[in-house]
Design a protein around this nucleic acid. Sequence first.
DNA 1: ATTGGGCGTTGAAAGGTTTCAACTACGGAT
DNA 2: ATCCGTAGTTGAAACCTTTCAACGCCCAAT
Lengths: 348, 348
Amino acid sequence: MVTEAEASLPRERSPRHVSVKDVAAAAGVSVGTVSNVLNRPDKVLPSTLEHVLGVIDELGFVRNDAARQLRAGTSRSVGMVVLDVRNPFFTDVAQGVEARLGEQGRPLILANSGQDEARESTYLDLFEEQRVSGLLITPVGQVLPRLRRIRDRGTAVVIVDRRVGSREFSSVSVDDKLGGRLAAQHLVDVGRRRIAFVGGPRGLNQVKDRLAAAEMVASASRGVALRFVETATMDADAGRRAAEDLLKLDGRERPDAIFAANDLIALGVLQALTLARVRVPDDIAIVGYDDIDFAASAAIPITSVRQPREGMGQVAADLLLDVIADPARRVRHVVLEPELVVRRSTAG
Amino acid sequence: MVTEAEASLPRERSPRHVSVKDVAAAAGVSVGTVSNVLNRPDKVLPSTLEHVLGVIDELGFVRNDAARQLRAGTSRSVGMVVLDVRNPFFTDVAQGVEARLGEQGRPLILANSGQDEARESTYLDLFEEQRVSGLLITPVGQVLPRLRRIRDRGTAVVIVDRRVGSREFSSVSVDDKLGGRLAAQHLVDVGRRRIAFVGGPRGLNQVKDRLAAAEMVASASRGVALRFVETATMDADAGRRAAEDLLKLDGRERPDAIFAANDLIALGVLQALTLARVRVPDDIAIVGYDDIDFAASAAIPITSVRQPREGMGQVAADLLLDVIADPARRVRHVVLEPELVVRRSTAG
DNA sequence: ATTGGGCGTTGAAAGGTTTCAACTACGGAT
DNA sequence: ATCCGTAGTTGAAACCTTTCAACGCCCAAT
């Protein structure tokens, strides 16, 4: 019975893939010619071309990229490791990269380290095994030696949104010191005296630089105190929690301004403050960083330090393409300038 | 002179990659053994294992994934084509997928169709050529025949956030009719009579279903009129423009409620209304769709239809893994339920 | 002393594409 | 009539990994 039932099922023919060899056989030409049809159509007699294309279509032939890469030694793809795909900042940067690479017919493979060293490392493995032709990375952990080895094996590497290993790798970044200064100075200018910087982890250069610049501004302004509230991550949730902690401080300790290391944190902070009926900006002003689209449409539109996100992506792609084209090329660092966008969260 | 200069340059040794063969030679074993070290370490004498691993490390050997895939016939990766990476809804779904796939050590390759048929098609080509083991897609164009062929060649396919080709492909979706009904009924319940549905393009099933359900609610409620404002895309910009158009209508024509097909549109609408000093919800109420995190933190927190985003991603991954494991598996459709989250944009 | 079985290792084959030197045919030049 | 050059095509080699039948060796059992 069982046998009968099975027998009555339509026999699935094994879905083996059609290869150039099959196409060649069916078309009555050599594999070399099929390959020429695919890669150098001008070298093929028009009639042959047409015929082979017909067979390809009929048989449903699809190039096997693995074999192609194996032969070529490297893939055309570019790998990109970002800190957090859910942060629009990074998807905007990626968008810029993708746009530029797309012009060259190079696919972008996006991977999300989630600020986790282990995942970062896993994805680097993956990209190496895939022999991507280039690698864009915003490093989390101590990956410099690793990147060096990758580069030595012939893969182009460009650092995005950071400037580490300056002697060895080209990079695009935005001047975080300037950004930090702009934000802090603005808060001081609108009369704030007790500023809390919320962000982290401390190890991140971005955090470090923005904080350092803010500290300089604070110490240069009489009567201004700055405290650092470290967070483990840079998302809205971290912002909410940090704000709740700050609200536990009473009167004289409580800050009158919060400088968030990015807009997601700022949004979280804003939510927590609103929930606690703290008035923004009257009681506490907020400055964010990145100027993601959502900052402008927040409950209280958030003052933010705008970074040229897509532009950064494009520059990153350009630098990488240069290195791919000529690995010996001199290391370059492009530093873009951020810009303060004042909105209601600090107005007043 | 030129020659001298060149000669004096440090001779770049070509960065050829180290292969198993090289490792084998250096370790004094056969390639088979090296492969065993990598894939079946338990079959190898501990002393050999250690020695070979040492050589691997020393030589900086990195597996060539292309060769590996070529042999295996298929890659472990899963490809996913989303409509818009910049929409947090999709990155949240992708996050869910990635989490589940990650448990199985399968990388997820994300591609962005941007609601463009040509790009969708390009990425399908890419994924096919890469022989991904599975494909998750939220289709834009008429890709059904295409997907059928891909499936017939042995690639698992699962439809995400849609339910097309029900007989042939498993799918996860959220009940858009229900969502549309919830939103529209809510607007009617709070006393709105002239509802504008903003979204598009019309061809999208999601749009179609949500709209159809809203129309049913409208026609079942006396004195309620519904108009459809079609947009080309589903982003904030489209929302802004649609709202500007709606504001050109005078008094009696002007809607007192807007049902946006997603939250990005809703945010755009909100911005345009705010700019035009239209009071929300007093003059015009807004309902969004998706309940992305940013809906809650908008200037006026937006009432929205919540979709289980990560959950959907996980279900999608599960369905896909099932099909990969057993291609003959019966087609299944998981339909999740949305839920209305009421906030200030409709309160009153 | 011989056989059988296990363990660890070997080496060749397979997988699909691209490249390139070599070949064929043919028209034009000598 | 012969040679040359060109355009089009061929087929083998190379890319690197994995698999698997076969092999050698040693110990245990007969």
